[in-house]
């Protein structure tokens, strides 16, 4: 029984992190109408950048290292849009998606070039945490939950309480109409990339804190984020939040039934299932 409770807790924890990935991915999808296949690499680079600033030669403490890590991940997100996606905005989707995959591959191997393919950790010692109703949690895990809640509140405030957030929602509803009504599309797109990259960075760091760092972590989490998006309804930011949590729970509870080696494939399985169960596609509203 306590094992199940623990699994649920672990699932919620992982779900929080996936939710951050999914929310960022779905925002870009909403505004620019394509799946950013390089989103996983923003996650991975975010985590590695923190590793960089905490280790040689900087040795910043965690809270200081967080700032340049966040900053550089955002620059990376803005950079990929500026260098690659912007020139391709008006071409066909195949070109855009292949380019996105190219970026993903480039960045993944870039990380491998610097840090190698082996697993790494931030090297915090695991402090004995609290026990609550037979669930044990570490200080790291508490931090993850608090950080996720913080991010969600910030995203909420930005989307619903700021002018740019309202503009963003308008742009995603109808880019043409937004242009006509004088909303600054460029600024909005930039804003979208900033939030999306920042969420990826924070999520990546939290994931690495909970597990470890590895250049391949981006791709597998992209698939999870995408499954979460599908679950919550494509383009729906709050749907992505719930989708992410659901995926995290399903993944951790699945361990009760199947081999842990397949834990990472649960998200994919759910995605396929969802695609099968989806009602008829509305071709007319494709554009």
């Amino acid at each position: 029984m306590s094992y199940i409770l623990q699994s649920i807790f672990n699932g919620l924890l992982a779900g929080c992190i996936y939710a951050l990935f999914a929310m960022g991915l779905t925002m870009v999808y909403r505004v620019l109408n394509f799946v950013n296949f390089a989103h996983g690499e923003l996650i991975m680079w975010g985590a590695y950048l923190l590793y960089l600033f905490m280790g040689d030669p900087f040795h910043f403490p965690l809270y200081v290292a967080l700032i340049p890590a966040l900053g550089f991940t955002i620059l990376l997100g803005l950079g990929m849009d500026w260098i690659v996606f912007k020139p391709l905005r008006r071409t066909n989707r195949l070109t855009l998606l292949i380019a996105a995959l190219g970026i993903s591959f480039f960045l993944r191997n870039g990380a491998q070039l610097f840090w190698g393919a082996e697993l790494r950790t931030y090297g915090f010692e695991i402090k004995r945490g609290w026990r609550l109703f037979h669930i044990s949690m570490t200080a790291n895990q508490m931090a993850i939950i608090l950080a996720t809640l913080g991010c969600i509140i910030i995203v909420y405030l930005l989307l619903y309480r700021s002018i740019i957030g309202k503009a963003m929602r308008a742009v995603s509803d109808n880019l043409e109409l937004a242009r006509v009504t004088g909303i600054n599309a460029k600024k909005t797109i930039r804003f979208t990339w900033i939030i999306s990259s920042a969420l990826a960075c924070v999520g990546g760091i939290l994931l690495a804190l909970d597990t470890n760092l590895q250049p391949g972590m981006g791709m597998i989490n992209l698939v999870k984020a995408f499954a979460a998006i599908l679950l919550g309804g494509v383009g729906n930011v709050w749907g992505a939040l719930w989708g992410g949590i659901f995926i995290g729970l399903a993944e951790n509870l699945s361990v009760l039934f199947i081999s842990t080696g397949y834990k990472d494939s649960i998200a994919f399985g759910m995605m396929v299932l969802l695609l099968l169960l989806r009602p008829r596609v509305l071709y007319g509203s494709q554009e």
Binding site: L88, T95, A99, G102, I103, F105, G110, Q112
Partner: peptide
């Protein structure tokens, strides 16, 4: 990884 980076970069460049 360097060779892979070249491949990824080439893909972007071509697109």
């Amino acid at each position: 990884p360097l060779q892979q980076m070249i491949f990824g970069g080439l893909l972007i460049f071509l697109m």
